[in-house]
Design a protein around this nucleic acid. Structure first.
Lengths: 141, 141
DNA sequence: CTCGTTGCAAAGCCTTTGCAGGTGT
DNA sequence: ACACCTGCAAAGGCTTTGCAACGAG
Protein backbone atom coordinates (compact mmCIF):
# COMPACT_ATOMS: atom_id res chain seq x y z
CA UNK A 1 0.00 0.00 0.00
CA UNK A 2 1.06 3.55 -0.66
CA UNK A 3 3.11 4.57 2.36
CA UNK A 4 1.25 7.84 2.73
CA UNK A 5 -2.04 5.98 2.95
CA UNK A 6 -0.44 3.67 5.46
CA UNK A 7 0.37 6.72 7.53
CA UNK A 8 -3.26 7.78 7.54
CA UNK A 9 -4.31 4.36 8.64
CA UNK A 10 -1.65 4.23 11.34
CA UNK A 11 -2.98 7.43 12.79
CA UNK A 12 -6.44 5.94 13.01
CA UNK A 13 -7.95 7.68 10.02
CA UNK A 14 -9.91 5.99 7.30
CA UNK A 15 -8.74 5.49 3.76
CA UNK A 16 -11.42 6.97 1.56
CA UNK A 17 -11.44 7.36 -2.21
CA UNK A 18 -11.23 11.14 -1.71
CA UNK A 19 -8.06 10.81 0.31
CA UNK A 20 -6.53 8.46 -2.20
CA UNK A 21 -7.20 10.97 -4.95
CA UNK A 22 -5.77 13.91 -3.07
CA UNK A 23 -2.56 12.08 -2.30
CA UNK A 24 -2.35 10.75 -5.80
CA UNK A 25 -2.64 14.20 -7.35
CA UNK A 26 -0.04 15.70 -5.05
CA UNK A 27 2.39 12.87 -5.53
CA UNK A 28 2.19 13.31 -9.27
CA UNK A 29 2.56 17.08 -9.22
CA UNK A 30 5.96 18.64 -9.79
CA UNK A 31 4.97 21.70 -7.76
CA UNK A 32 2.89 22.49 -4.71
CA UNK A 33 -0.78 23.00 -5.46
CA UNK A 34 -3.40 25.25 -3.97
CA UNK A 35 -6.58 23.71 -2.62
CA UNK A 36 -8.40 25.04 -5.68
CA UNK A 37 -5.92 23.52 -8.10
CA UNK A 38 -6.12 20.22 -6.30
CA UNK A 39 -9.89 20.39 -6.49
CA UNK A 40 -9.87 21.14 -10.21
CA UNK A 41 -7.66 18.18 -11.00
CA UNK A 42 -9.66 15.86 -8.80
CA UNK A 43 -12.98 16.95 -10.26
CA UNK A 44 -11.87 15.71 -13.66
CA UNK A 45 -11.87 12.22 -12.24
CA UNK A 46 -14.54 12.51 -9.60
CA UNK A 47 -16.76 15.54 -10.11
CA UNK A 48 -18.82 15.05 -6.99
CA UNK A 49 -15.98 15.67 -4.57
CA UNK A 50 -16.43 18.81 -2.50
CA UNK A 51 -13.95 21.61 -1.91
CA UNK A 52 -14.70 21.39 1.79
CA UNK A 53 -13.49 17.80 1.78
CA UNK A 54 -10.32 18.85 0.06
CA UNK A 55 -9.59 21.56 2.59
CA UNK A 56 -10.39 19.25 5.48
CA UNK A 57 -8.10 16.55 4.18
CA UNK A 58 -5.27 18.81 3.19
CA UNK A 59 -5.28 20.17 6.71
CA UNK A 60 -5.49 16.72 8.19
CA UNK A 61 -2.59 15.53 6.08
CA UNK A 62 -0.54 18.51 7.13
CA UNK A 63 -1.28 17.73 10.77
CA UNK A 64 -0.01 14.18 10.47
CA UNK A 65 2.94 15.57 8.53
CA UNK A 66 2.28 13.73 5.32
CA UNK A 67 1.99 17.07 3.58
CA UNK A 68 3.55 20.42 4.18
CA UNK A 69 1.83 23.71 3.68
CA UNK A 70 3.42 26.77 2.11
CA UNK A 71 1.80 29.95 3.31
CA UNK A 72 2.14 32.71 0.79
CA UNK A 73 1.46 36.31 1.64
CA UNK A 74 -1.64 37.59 -0.16
CA UNK A 75 -2.25 34.34 -1.96
CA UNK A 76 -3.76 30.92 -1.44
CA UNK A 77 -1.66 28.43 0.50
CA UNK A 78 0.03 25.64 -1.42
CA UNK A 79 0.39 22.03 -0.39
CA UNK A 80 3.01 19.46 -1.27
CA UNK A 81 4.27 16.10 -0.13
CA UNK A 82 6.31 16.72 3.00
CA UNK A 83 10.01 16.65 2.22
CA UNK A 84 11.21 17.79 5.59
CA UNK A 85 11.71 21.31 6.82
CA UNK A 86 12.42 23.62 3.91
CA UNK A 87 12.11 27.10 2.54
CA UNK A 88 11.53 28.02 -1.08
CA UNK A 89 11.68 30.47 -3.92
CA UNK A 90 8.04 30.66 -4.88
CA UNK A 91 7.11 31.57 -8.41
CA UNK A 92 4.07 33.81 -8.57
CA UNK A 93 3.62 32.91 -12.20
CA UNK A 94 3.44 29.13 -12.21
CA UNK A 95 3.51 28.21 -8.54
CA UNK A 96 6.80 26.38 -8.76
CA UNK A 97 8.70 26.08 -5.49
CA UNK A 98 12.47 25.92 -5.67
CA UNK A 99 13.91 24.50 -2.48
CA UNK A 100 16.61 26.42 -0.68
CA UNK A 101 18.39 24.25 1.80
CA UNK A 102 18.85 27.00 4.32
CA UNK A 103 16.81 27.94 7.36
CA UNK A 104 17.32 31.43 8.74
CA UNK A 105 16.59 30.19 12.24
CA UNK A 106 20.20 29.83 13.29
CA UNK A 107 23.26 31.72 14.40
CA UNK A 108 22.67 35.29 15.49
CA UNK A 109 18.91 34.94 15.03
CA UNK A 110 18.76 32.08 17.49
CA UNK A 111 20.84 34.04 19.96
CA UNK A 112 18.46 36.97 19.74
CA UNK A 113 15.52 34.71 20.38
CA UNK A 114 17.21 33.33 23.47
CA UNK A 115 18.18 36.76 24.69
CA UNK A 116 14.59 37.94 24.48
CA UNK A 117 13.26 34.81 26.14
CA UNK A 118 10.96 34.49 23.13
CA UNK A 119 9.11 31.20 22.75
CA UNK A 120 8.76 30.24 19.09
CA UNK A 121 5.49 28.97 17.76
CA UNK A 122 6.53 28.85 14.13
CA UNK A 123 8.46 30.70 11.51
CA UNK A 124 8.03 31.61 7.89
CA UNK A 125 10.66 32.39 5.35
CA UNK A 126 9.54 32.77 1.82
CA UNK A 127 10.84 34.50 -1.25
CA UNK A 128 8.34 35.31 -3.94
CA UNK A 129 9.07 36.33 -7.49
CA UNK A 130 9.35 34.79 -10.93
CA UNK A 131 11.27 31.75 -12.04
CA UNK A 132 13.47 31.78 -15.11
CA UNK A 133 10.83 30.16 -17.34
CA UNK A 134 8.13 32.60 -16.35
CA UNK A 135 10.45 35.52 -17.00
CA UNK A 136 11.21 34.22 -20.48
CA UNK A 137 7.55 33.59 -21.15
CA UNK A 138 6.78 37.15 -20.07
CA UNK A 139 9.56 38.59 -22.24
CA UNK A 140 8.33 36.62 -25.25
CA UNK A 141 4.90 38.25 -25.14
CA UNK B 1 3.96 70.11 10.78
CA UNK B 2 4.29 66.43 11.54
CA UNK B 3 6.85 65.09 9.10
CA UNK B 4 4.67 62.15 8.16
CA UNK B 5 1.86 64.50 7.21
CA UNK B 6 4.36 66.52 5.25
CA UNK B 7 5.21 63.38 3.34
CA UNK B 8 1.58 62.88 2.39
CA UNK B 9 1.36 66.41 1.18
CA UNK B 10 4.60 66.15 -0.78
CA UNK B 11 3.25 63.15 -2.59
CA UNK B 12 0.21 65.12 -3.64
CA UNK B 13 -2.25 63.63 -1.16
CA UNK B 14 -4.57 65.60 1.03
CA UNK B 15 -4.29 65.94 4.74
CA UNK B 16 -7.61 64.86 6.14
CA UNK B 17 -8.65 64.51 9.77
CA UNK B 18 -8.87 60.75 9.23
CA UNK B 19 -5.28 60.59 8.06
CA UNK B 20 -4.12 62.71 10.95
CA UNK B 21 -5.80 60.35 13.36
CA UNK B 22 -4.38 57.20 11.81
CA UNK B 23 -0.86 58.54 11.91
CA UNK B 24 -1.34 59.85 15.40
CA UNK B 25 -2.52 56.49 16.71
CA UNK B 26 0.33 54.60 15.09
CA UNK B 27 2.95 57.05 16.25
CA UNK B 28 1.75 56.65 19.81
CA UNK B 29 1.56 52.87 19.73
CA UNK B 30 4.46 50.86 21.07
CA UNK B 31 3.58 47.97 18.78
CA UNK B 32 2.24 47.46 15.27
CA UNK B 33 -1.53 47.50 15.06
CA UNK B 34 -4.00 45.66 12.89
CA UNK B 35 -6.49 47.65 10.85
CA UNK B 36 -9.18 46.59 13.34
CA UNK B 37 -7.19 47.76 16.33
CA UNK B 38 -6.46 51.05 14.65
CA UNK B 39 -10.14 51.44 13.90
CA UNK B 40 -11.16 50.70 17.49
CA UNK B 41 -8.81 53.31 18.87
CA UNK B 42 -9.86 55.89 16.33
CA UNK B 43 -13.54 55.30 16.90
CA UNK B 44 -13.15 56.36 20.49
CA UNK B 45 -12.29 59.83 19.24
CA UNK B 46 -14.24 59.90 16.01
CA UNK B 47 -16.92 57.21 15.85
CA UNK B 48 -18.06 57.99 12.34
CA UNK B 49 -14.81 56.96 10.67
CA UNK B 50 -15.16 53.92 8.46
CA UNK B 51 -13.04 50.80 8.40
CA UNK B 52 -12.80 51.12 4.65
CA UNK B 53 -11.14 54.48 5.06
CA UNK B 54 -8.69 52.99 7.48
CA UNK B 55 -7.74 50.20 5.12
CA UNK B 56 -7.47 52.60 2.22
CA UNK B 57 -5.21 54.93 4.12
CA UNK B 58 -3.07 52.28 5.71
CA UNK B 59 -2.39 50.92 2.26
CA UNK B 60 -1.71 54.37 0.89
CA UNK B 61 0.71 55.11 3.70
CA UNK B 62 2.50 51.85 3.08
CA UNK B 63 2.80 52.73 -0.58
CA UNK B 64 4.47 56.04 0.13
CA UNK B 65 6.61 54.22 2.68
CA UNK B 66 5.44 56.15 5.71
CA UNK B 67 4.24 52.90 7.21
CA UNK B 68 5.39 49.35 6.89
CA UNK B 69 3.13 46.35 6.85
CA UNK B 70 3.82 43.10 8.66
CA UNK B 71 2.10 40.20 7.01
CA UNK B 72 1.38 37.45 9.46
CA UNK B 73 0.40 33.99 8.31
CA UNK B 74 -3.17 33.16 9.32
CA UNK B 75 -3.75 36.49 11.01
CA UNK B 76 -4.55 40.08 10.22
CA UNK B 77 -1.69 42.23 8.92
CA UNK B 78 -0.13 44.75 11.30
CA UNK B 79 0.98 48.26 10.48
CA UNK B 80 3.65 50.41 12.06
CA UNK B 81 5.64 53.54 11.37
CA UNK B 82 8.28 52.60 8.83
CA UNK B 83 11.64 52.09 10.48
CA UNK B 84 13.43 50.73 7.46
CA UNK B 85 13.68 47.16 6.30
CA UNK B 86 13.34 44.81 9.22
CA UNK B 87 12.19 41.44 10.39
CA UNK B 88 10.60 40.68 13.75
CA UNK B 89 9.70 38.27 16.47
CA UNK B 90 5.93 38.62 16.51
CA UNK B 91 4.04 37.91 19.68
CA UNK B 92 0.76 36.15 19.03
CA UNK B 93 -0.41 37.17 22.49
CA UNK B 94 -0.06 40.91 22.53
CA UNK B 95 1.04 41.76 19.00
CA UNK B 96 4.43 43.09 20.07
CA UNK B 97 7.10 43.07 17.37
CA UNK B 98 10.69 42.67 18.47
CA UNK B 99 13.06 43.82 15.76
CA UNK B 100 15.81 41.52 14.64
CA UNK B 101 18.45 43.37 12.71
CA UNK B 102 19.09 40.53 10.32
CA UNK B 103 17.75 39.84 6.88
CA UNK B 104 18.08 36.28 5.58
CA UNK B 105 18.39 37.57 2.01
CA UNK B 106 22.17 37.38 1.87
CA UNK B 107 25.11 35.06 1.52
CA UNK B 108 24.31 31.60 0.26
CA UNK B 109 20.65 32.48 -0.20
CA UNK B 110 21.51 35.29 -2.59
CA UNK B 111 23.82 32.99 -4.48
CA UNK B 112 21.07 30.44 -4.91
CA UNK B 113 18.73 33.09 -6.22
CA UNK B 114 21.31 34.14 -8.79
CA UNK B 115 22.05 30.58 -9.77
CA UNK B 116 18.38 29.92 -10.48
CA UNK B 117 17.96 33.19 -12.34
CA UNK B 118 15.06 33.89 -10.02
CA UNK B 119 13.68 37.42 -10.05
CA UNK B 120 12.61 38.50 -6.57
CA UNK B 121 9.32 40.25 -6.07
CA UNK B 122 9.43 40.30 -2.30
CA UNK B 123 10.45 38.26 0.68
CA UNK B 124 9.00 37.48 3.95
CA UNK B 125 10.68 36.35 7.14
CA UNK B 126 8.73 36.22 10.33
CA UNK B 127 8.97 34.37 13.59
CA UNK B 128 5.78 33.99 15.57
CA UNK B 129 5.46 32.91 19.18
CA UNK B 130 5.11 34.45 22.61
CA UNK B 131 7.13 37.20 24.23
CA UNK B 132 8.48 36.89 27.74
CA UNK B 133 5.64 38.89 29.29
CA UNK B 134 2.93 36.85 27.61
CA UNK B 135 4.60 33.64 28.74
CA UNK B 136 4.65 34.86 32.33
CA UNK B 137 1.05 36.00 32.11
CA UNK B 138 0.07 32.59 30.77
CA UNK B 139 1.98 30.77 33.52
CA UNK B 140 0.34 32.91 36.18
CA UNK B 141 -3.15 31.81 35.18
C1' DC C 1 -23.07 -1.37 13.36
C1' DT C 2 -20.68 2.70 14.48
C1' DC C 3 -18.20 6.61 14.18
C1' DG C 4 -15.47 8.93 11.06
C1' DT C 5 -16.33 11.22 6.60
C1' DT C 6 -18.61 13.39 3.04
C1' DG C 7 -21.34 16.96 0.21
C1' DC C 8 -23.82 20.95 0.32
C1' DA C 9 -24.64 25.41 1.49
C1' DA C 10 -23.98 28.90 4.56
C1' DA C 11 -20.95 31.66 7.17
C1' DG C 12 -16.41 33.45 8.72
C1' DC C 13 -12.52 36.36 8.45
C1' DC C 14 -9.87 39.99 6.57
C1' DT C 15 -9.87 43.14 3.04
C1' DT C 16 -11.40 45.65 -1.13
C1' DT C 17 -14.68 48.15 -4.07
C1' DG C 18 -18.76 50.95 -6.16
C1' DC C 19 -21.17 54.74 -5.47
C1' DA C 20 -23.12 59.12 -4.09
C1' DG C 21 -22.19 62.81 -1.24
C1' DG C 22 -18.63 65.61 1.23
C1' DT C 23 -14.07 68.27 1.71
C1' DG C 24 -9.21 69.90 1.39
C1' DT C 25 -6.42 73.06 -1.52
C1' DA D 1 -14.32 74.65 -8.36
C1' DC D 2 -12.44 70.21 -8.90
C1' DA D 3 -10.37 66.24 -7.94
C1' DC D 4 -9.67 63.77 -4.21
C1' DC D 5 -11.75 61.54 -0.01
C1' DT D 6 -15.07 59.63 2.76
C1' DG D 7 -18.92 56.51 4.70
C1' DC D 8 -21.85 52.94 3.83
C1' DA D 9 -22.96 48.62 2.42
C1' DA D 10 -22.11 45.08 -0.53
C1' DA D 11 -18.92 41.81 -2.44
C1' DG D 12 -14.42 39.54 -2.86
C1' DG D 13 -11.10 35.59 -2.04
C1' DC D 14 -9.78 31.95 0.74
C1' DT D 15 -11.09 28.90 4.19
C1' DT D 16 -13.98 26.77 7.79
C1' DT D 17 -18.22 24.87 9.78
C1' DG D 18 -23.12 22.82 10.77
C1' DC D 19 -25.81 19.32 9.46
C1' DA D 20 -27.88 15.21 7.69
C1' DA D 21 -26.72 11.35 4.90
C1' DC D 22 -23.12 8.02 3.79
C1' DG D 23 -19.61 4.44 4.04
C1' DA D 24 -15.05 2.28 5.82
C1' DG D 25 -13.59 -0.79 9.40
Amino acid sequence: MNSKLQELSNCGFKITPQRRLILDILQKSDRPLTAEETAERIKKKEPRISVATIYRNLNLLVEIEVLSKLEIADAAARFQINQGHNHHLLCLGCGAAIKIGICPLQGRVEELIQEHGFSIDSHYFEITGYCRECQLKEAGE
